[in-house]
């Protein structure tokens, strides 16, 4: 075990910085993208083109009073944002940013990230059960129902890529795409993966658990200030991790012409996040039964047929 204490502390500080910086950039990006897609300008006041808007928002959120409702279950209520946020530190470990920049090379890195992505939804369920609020309860239950729809197509998608590469380790998958990216071999799978990952991170058009027009504010109705910001940190960081997986699995990881590997990885990750934000302002929210039937009647047969065809082609 040749890790040093300096390595562990450096990793934790680096990931905390990355999570915070990512949230700052993404909040600004989301509001700008939302603004421009709706033919308006978005935040322009604070700083040039509103760059410092997130800082102002952050200061506001941190200085708000933490209101805990009287009848809410205090341990569950306070534990929920932490349960959502902590697995991010573990899920960022196997993610390769370039050939040499990776926290720790795990043999089963891919499965670990998928397994830990589930704990976000458990945090949402905890919040829903903990606040003594029927809107929060509905939001939490809906988030758990979403797991049913996306779990199997996601696993089959990932299994197809593993079959093509022959290894679970993210570094090997990225190295194997030196000549051609996997998206050229499997375009349909890429689309299925993006849809599944939108389902997993509770983004529009599948954001029932925080549906603003139906459920007041869903699972985070009773959270104010710091709790709310922790949930949003967690959501943006899971988007980052999911987009990171998409880059490594489909878009060739860090390979690219002139820029260093880390720059290419970040460019690809933020393009996929931009795509997910684009979805948010293009599609209306679907109903739960529509989502379930979409997941089971369209995504699952599509990914299964893809899997079988890939297995057939690889065997020949």
């Amino acid at each position: 075990m040749n890790i040093s204490l300096l390595g562990i502390v450096g990793y934790l500080v680096g990931i905390a910085a990355l999570v915070g910086l990512n949230a700052v950039i993404l909040v600004w990006l989301e509001r700008k993208v939302a603004g421009h897609m709706q033919f308006r300008l978005g935040p322009m006041e604070v700083g040039p083109h509103g760059i410092l808007q997130t800082l102002a928002d952050g200061i506001k959120l941190v200085s708000k009073q933490l209101v805990i409702p009287d009848e809410a279950d205090k341990p569950l209520f306070l534990l929920a944002p932490i349960v959502s946020l902590v697995p991010i530190f573990a899920a960022m470990v196997p993610l390769p940013f370039s050939e040499t920049v990776q926290a720790w090379e795990l043999n089963i890195g891919l499965l670990l990230i998928i397994a830990l992505g589930l704990l976000n939804t458990l945090g949402i369920l905890l919040a829903g059960w903990g606040s003594n609020n029927k809107y929060a309860l509905l939001g939490g239950a809906r988030a758990v129902a979403q797991i049913l729809a996306y779990k199997i197509p996601l696993l089959i998608c990932v299994m197809t890529i593993i079959m093509m590469t022959g290894s679970f380790s993210l570094r090997d998958i990225a190295i194997a795409q030196k000549d051609t990216w996997n998206v050229l071999y499997q375009p349909i799978l890429f689309i299925v993966y993006i849809i599944t990952v939108t389902l997993e991170t509770n983004r529009s058009p599948f954001d029932f658990s925080e549906a603003e027009s139906e459920l007041v504010a869903g699972f985070h109705t009773e959270y104010s200030g710091m709790g709310f910001s922790l949930f949003f940190l967690a959501e943006y960081s899971y988007m980052f991790i999911a987009a990171g997986l998409a880059t490594v699995l489909f878009l060739g990881g860090w390979h690219g012409p002139w820029l260093p590997g880390v720059a290419w990885t970040l460019i690809k990750i933020y393009s996929i996040i931009f795509l997910m934000m684009w979805f948010r302002w293009t599609f209306p929210r679907v109903r739960i039964d529509q989502m379930l039937s979409f997941g089971w009647k369209i995504l699952l047969p599509l990914s299964l047929i893809n899997f079988i065809i890939t297995a057939g082609v690889l065997a020949l």
């Binding site: 089963i108 499965l111 998928i114 397994a115």
Partner: peptide, 21 residues
């Protein structure tokens, strides 16, 4: 590590979700 990740995926991912339902 394989059995550890399988434990998380199967138990927490499937059995605990079913129990929550």
């Amino acid at each position: 590590p394989l059995v550890a990740v399988m434990q998380i995926m199967i138990y927490i991912g499937a059995v605990c979700v079913a129990i929550a339902f």
